[in-house]
């Protein structure tokens, strides 16, 4: 099940970090993290991605990788604390996967989250909340001309 606003999508079984543009999917304490459709769209073409090593423990907002898109180099700041248990080597080899398949092959890392329940309280969850947030984000980005115009 997913929400579609024009050509951008947000699956409703995910959690969304409204501050840093990530989606998260939890399976027990394991959380897979990637960039949501609107964020990848407004970032432009991803040219390079580096991800921190498996086993790295990170606190919320610490960098778990660096990235280049549209001549901008920045960092992925992790939306919740935990230890990296998997990283997507495919996306390191082909960063365009973030643009082409943000919720699928374009995922970034998986972490073993510490105290997951308390950490996810600020994330957007549930169909209606996701719909409200996603429509408003879309409108904001579209107004500013950040989204590709078909």
């Amino acid at each position: 099940m997913k929400i579609t606003v024009n050509n951008t999508e947000a699956p409703t079984d995910l959690m969304y970090d409204p501050d840093n543009g990530f989606w998260m999917k939890a399976d027990g304490n394991t959380v897979r993290i990637g960039l949501n459709h609107l964020t990848q769209e407004s970032s432009g073409t991803f040219v390079a991605v580096r991800l921190s090593d498996i086993g790295t423990s990170l606190k919320k907002d610490e960098s778990f990788g660096s990235v280049e898109a549209e001549k901008h180099v920045g960092h992925f700041n992790i939306p919740l604390s935990g230890k990296i248990i998997r990283k997507n080597e495919k996306v390191v080899d082909n960063p365009g996967l973030i643009n082409n398949d943000p919720y699928g092959e374009g995922w970034l890392i998986e972490i073993e989250a510490s105290d997951l329940e308390s950490q996810v309280q600020n994330f957007i969850q549930g169909k209606q909340s996701i719909l409200d947030w996603f429509e408003s984000e879309y409108a904001k980005m579209n107004d500013k001309g950040w989204l590709a115009q078909d």
Binding site: S63, E70, K71, H72, V73, G74, H75, N77
Partner: peptide
């Protein structure tokens, strides 16, 4: 478009940004 300055379609300056963690 891709973050350059141009004069009559010719590039006169290139731009780049880095944001640290």
């Amino acid at each position: 478009a891709k973050n350059d300055l141009e004069v009559n379609g010719k590039k006169i300056a290139g731009l780049g940004v880095y944001i640290d963690p």
